[in-house]
Each structure stands twice: as C-alpha cells, then as structure tokens.
Simulated scan of single mutants.
Amino acid sequence: MKKSRTNAYIIGSAAIAIVAIVTAGVITANSDSSNEATPSPTVTVTVTETAAAEQDAKPTEQEAGFKTGDEARNGGAVVKITKVTTSGTVTLAGAQKKAGADAKYVTVKTVVTNETKSSMDLTCSLPINNALIDDQGRRFDTIEDIYDVAGNPECNAQLQPGFKDEMLWVYRVPKDAKVASWEFSEFNLDSERTPTLIDLT
C-alpha cells in the first residue's frame, strides 16, 4: 500500500513538471509571436530640396536692349528713336557748319517723354546722359551748343512732367566710323543709373 502511494506521488510530480514545461513553452512562443507581430517603430525622414537660384535671371529693361522705333525707359526718361541720319553739315543757329574732310555728323532724332516728377531742360541742363557708340566701342559726346541745332527745344525750355518733345542729338565722328548703338540714362545726383542701350545696326 505504501509503495502505491509513492508511485502516485512520483507520477503526480512528473505531471506537474510536464505542465510547467508546456506552460513555459507556450508563454515563450506567445512572447516571440508578440514580438514578431509588433513591428519596430519606423522613423520617416523628409528631405526638402531647395532649388538653387537660377543663374540666368530674366534680363532687366536696361540689359534687354532696344531698337529704333522702340520706347526705351531709364528712370523717368522715356526715349524713342525715330530716325538716324548722317551728313557732312549741320544747321546751327541758322547757319551751316561743316564737319570737315575726315569727319561727319550723325544725328539721332528722338521723341522724349518726361515721366519724372519735375521738369527737364533738354538742351541746356542735359537731364539725360547719352553717348553714341561705334562698332569699335568708341563713345562720342554730343556737339556743343546743341540748343542751336535747328528743330531742338530752346535753352531753358522746360519739358514738364507728362509731356513729350522732339529732340535731336548730334555727334561729330570720324568719317569711317560705323555707328552701332546709342545709350542714355536719366541724370540723377543721388545714384548712378545703368544706361539703357538702343541698337542702331
């Protein structure tokens, strides 16, 4: 009878041990399964690319260039070239003046519109800086006493804001000079303006 009880105790202990092992295996399996089912957190990195500024920006009005017949602007001065002529003489104060054997006069006929806030004295104060440029890059100034050129505004004839007037810019250049362009800029004591270029070719 004692032997039967001992065997029962041994069988019961073995059963308990087996249950414990099985339970531990289930817990471990569940733990592994849980780890597999729960994904690791994913870190998303957003990279924003900023486009580099374009090197070739749109040209400004001064850089773009103009041709005869276009209305070109510089500050508040608006100039349209209507005609370019070449001659051996020019009429000054009612008299003919010769350019000389090795020279010629180039006349740039324009219409100037004053869109500034004050008047312009086109022939004496010269509110518009200008130059005639040939194909060699040489720059020529207007002749003296340009107010004496036939057809030009008189000295101290103030072109008021919002009005326009014809203006002849006359240059004495070498006879073989090939005119390429004309540039101008509104005269400004406070700042130097980039000249506006007009193609004459």
Results as ranks from 00 to 15, higher is better:
T46K: 02
Y147H: 11
A177H: 08
L159K: 03
T201E: 12
F163T: 11
S191G: 10
T44V: 15
R172W: 05
T38D: 12
L189C: 05
V79P: 00
V179S: 02
L168R: 08
T50A: 10
T6W: 12
P174L: 07
Q160F: 04
E115T: 05
T113S: 05
G88E: 14
L92S: 09
P39F: 06
E115N: 14
E166W: 04
S34N: 08
Y9K: 11
A131N: 04
K97H: 12
I10T: 12
T86F: 02
L200N: 03
F140P: 05
D165T: 13
P59L: 14
T48K: 12
V173P: 07
K98R: 11
A131L: 12
A93W: 06
S34M: 12
N30K: 07
V111A: 13
L159V: 08
E36Q: 09
V26F: 14
E115W: 00
G94W: 10
A77P: 06
D32N: 12
A8R: 06
P153H: 06
A103M: 11
T107N: 04
L92D: 10
T89D: 10
V112K: 00
P41V: 13
Q96I: 02
D70P: 07
V43L: 05
E144M: 06
E183H: 02
A20F: 08
L168G: 05
A72V: 15
N7G: 14
T142Q: 03
E61R: 07
A20S: 08
C155R: 03
T28W: 11
R73F: 06
T6A: 11
L132N: 01
T38Y: 15
S181K: 07
A8C: 08
K175E: 10
K58V: 15
I18L: 14
C155G: 03
G88F: 03
T85Q: 02
A29F: 14
V78Y: 00
E183Y: 02
A103H: 12
A37I: 07
Y105E: 09
A99I: 08
L122N: 11
Y9N: 14
V112Y: 00
V108D: 00
K117I: 10
A37P: 01
L168H: 11
I81W: 00
G76C: 01
P153A: 07
Q62E: 15
V112H: 00
A29Y: 11
A37L: 14
A103R: 10
Y147W: 09
A24R: 05
R5C: 12
S125K: 08
S125F: 14
L197R: 07
